[in-house]
Design a protein around this nucleic acid. Sequence first.
DNA 1: CTATGTGAATTTATTCACAGCA
DNA 2: TGCTGTGAATAAATTCACATAG
Lengths: 184, 184
Amino acid sequence: MSQQGLSSISSSKLADFVNVNHWQIRKDFSYFGDFGKRGVGYNIDTLARQIKKILNLDAVHKTVLVGVGNLGSALLAYPGFRIYGFKIAAAFDNDPAKIGTKVNDVTIEDVSKLGTLAKRQANLAIIAVPEQAAQDVADALVKVGIKGILNFVPRRINVPKKIKVITIDIATDLARLPYYIPSS
Amino acid sequence: MSQQGLSSISSSKLADFVNVNHWQIRKDFSYFGDFGKRGVGYNIDTLARQIKKILNLDAVHKTVLVGVGNLGSALLAYPGFRIYGFKIAAAFDNDPAKIGTKVNDVTIEDVSKLGTLAKRQANLAIIAVPEQAAQDVADALVKVGIKGILNFVPRRINVPKKIKVITIDIATDLARLPYYIPSS
DNA sequence: CTATGTGAATTTATTCACAGCA
DNA sequence: TGCTGTGAATAAATTCACATAG
């Protein structure tokens, strides 16, 4: 919207975009501050900045990818990360054929050298390895000081409580669909 | 657990697995029926069958994949779908180099021939195409009678209200992590 | 007049505590 | 004695309605 030259937006318009009610938008915002102008709406740039600040998205986050198979490659090519400030700073795999090659400007490193990450100040990681390797990779990432993990492996991984893990299990998401489908 | 020879499980054990309280497990189940035996617990096979029935997962769901790029290929290779009864019955792409080739026993077809699906009784679809193509693909899928869509494209797609769409936006999921990370 | 921000009312979800069955 | 199922109590989220500011 900002790029379209708009400067303000109302809670009703925002609500339409995300399919909720206008009062829900205002109530939610109100828990964090007074972002709007009565009679006018919300300044788009200011609002975006405030939300990014609340979500701690107002800085670049160095992110590490472990596992450059089909899914990992898709993630490396995925343009969606940039808008939120995620920078994939390193990628690791254990396949000798891949190590040393470049995918989207990132050189793939040997997963056994994960330890070298410690100096490089990445604090988020994406795990996209086969199931059996997931826990080992998680352990190595914890050891190296990672603070948060986005886990694509359909398996629970154990990490210290202060490390935040978000698991994306694609099969489980797909499994929610049939519930809404009449008989099939 | 069934494969490990166990026949029963208590709400407390189940609760530990999914990180909720034991009374939450029982309360949730109770909305759908009385599945357990007092003093014993829940019969594992019966419970699994009941849950699958509730979620409409007790039949094979023919599923169509559109877009066989990095992500689509990863999905074709993904073993997680099978356990819930999803069978990828067809895959489509618009790249001549891919059409006709086989990935995991599925022959890739020309996306312009999506119309031929009508006869093949698939009612779920996975969209993994570039952003610009998403709406056109969705329209074609609706025309061909699909009932539910798992959408991996970070963009809202418009479909008739009776069609259920679940969108997985990986960037948004990753964007939730920094909120939990101390300073960074 | 328009659109926000927020107390109050209402609805929904979670937690408790325990009766009742194997 | 062990564990379920569920009313009742508590907590949380949503919705309403309207005073207030531009």
